[in-house]
């Protein structure tokens, strides 16, 4: 049984204006998240990502469907038990949401105080956590004296205080600069690898999914439209909507306007070759063109790497006799995905 199992869940908000339509923020979502996963949820803003994670720790109640966390269906639990559930699910936020009236130490201690742990235990645990996130020397500082990256480290320490099995990260790096983002991602990787915490990470940043997640779900209009291993979804998105999202983060096939610009400078035929590991290599393809005396020029594309596996889409301009080009394309099609761009 997965650690988090979501079945046919909907979340409907009442209409904001009288006579308006109710808003279906989540619309029939099924999702399985296994223990130890780093599960990415991606999609444009407004797709329902934030609402979906808030259903998992019941900050928002689901309208219908079932959400089973660690064997318990949380949609039927009373509020008192939900508070206990939340002690087992940490959460970090885009805006950090630290308590400005409390020191770093006080922030990290808060969930432990809520859990009613004895003072001595809290003191020891807070010291241990601050050590873990590398902020032992900032214990007596207030949040407004910290940098963004430091604030998120405090957020992570606070979220981990009660040793939860699940960590929800809601755009946790979106307010940070690229360098700090990498530091925080590294910390989250450690949390997953060394502490065995299952992480559910919402993001619109390719970087985060690419370097952190093992599995990914793509959301649009309150639905999960595609889910799978990160490499599969990013290298070969099935649906047009996920292709569109992936293409905004992975440089691949030129858009119509980019194509028009390319046409002005190039007169030959365009083909897009998609490489995924396991198929033919780039050198095979180029060798084939060379052997037939077909001229080729790389005009668009890029190569990406996810979890040590490479994939890419390269658009080539081919020059030479049409029938020979056709023959080569037909031959290559048996081994690799190749599409003529018109």
């Amino acid at each position: 049984m997965p650690l988090v199992q979501i079945r046919d869940v909907t979340k409907v908000y009442p209409a904001s204006t009288r006579g308006g339509q109710p808003v279906r923020a989540i619309d029939g979502v099924d999702l399985d998240i296994e223990e130890g996963d780093v599960f990415g949820i991606i999609g444009y803003s407004g797709a329902g990502k934030s609402t979906l994670v808030r259903l998992i720790n019941a900050l928002e109640p689901a309208t219908s469907g079932s959400i089973v966390v660690d064997g318990t269906d949380i949609t039927t639990l009373p509020e008192r038990d939900l508070r206990k559930l939340r002690l087992g699910i940490g959460m970090i936020f885009q805006q950090f949401n630290l308590f400005s009236s409390r020191t770093v130490r006080g922030n990290v201690a808060y969930p432990l105080q809520v859990a009613g742990r004895p003072k001595a235990e809290i003191r020891a645990r807070v010291a241990e956590l601050l050590d873990f996130v590398g902020l032992a020397d900032k214990a007596s500082n207030y949040p407004d004296q910290l940098s963004g990256g430091q604030k998120q480290r405090v957020g992570i320490a606070r979220a981990l205080a009660t040793s939860p099995r699940i960590l929800l990260a809601d755009e946790a790096t979106s307010a940070l600069d690229p360098e700090t983002t990498q530091e925080v991602l590294e910390l989250l990787r450690t949390v997953n690898r060394d502490l065995g915490v299952t992480i559910i990470v919402i993001t619109h940043e390719m970087d985060v999914v690419q370097s952190l997640a093992t599995k990914v779900a793509v959301m649009e209009n309150g639905r999960v439209i595609e889910t799978g291993e990160v490499f599969d979804v990013f290298s070969k998105p099935e649906l047009p909507a996920s292709q569109r999202f992936v293409s905004t983060v992975v440089k691949g096939v030129p858009s119509a306007s980019e194509l028009a610009a390319l046409r002005e400078r190039h007169s030959g035929r365009f083909v897009t070759v998609s490489f995924r590991d396991g198929g033919a290599s780039q050198s095979d393809v180029f060798l084939e063109f060379g052997r037939e005396g077909i001229g080729f020029e790389l005009v668009y594309g890029g190569v990406n790497e996810i979890q040590g596996r490479a994939f890419g889409n390269l658009t080539l301009e081919l020059t030479g006799p049409d029938e020979r080009i056709d023959a080569v394309i037909a031959r290559l099609r048996e081994r690799i995905e190749i599409v003529e761009v018109v």
Binding site: R86, L87, N97, L98, F99, P111, L168
Partner: peptide
């Protein structure tokens, strides 16, 4: 929300 998420 952070306080509620912490179980308060």
């Amino acid at each position: 929300e952070a306080a509620r998420a912490a179980g308060a």
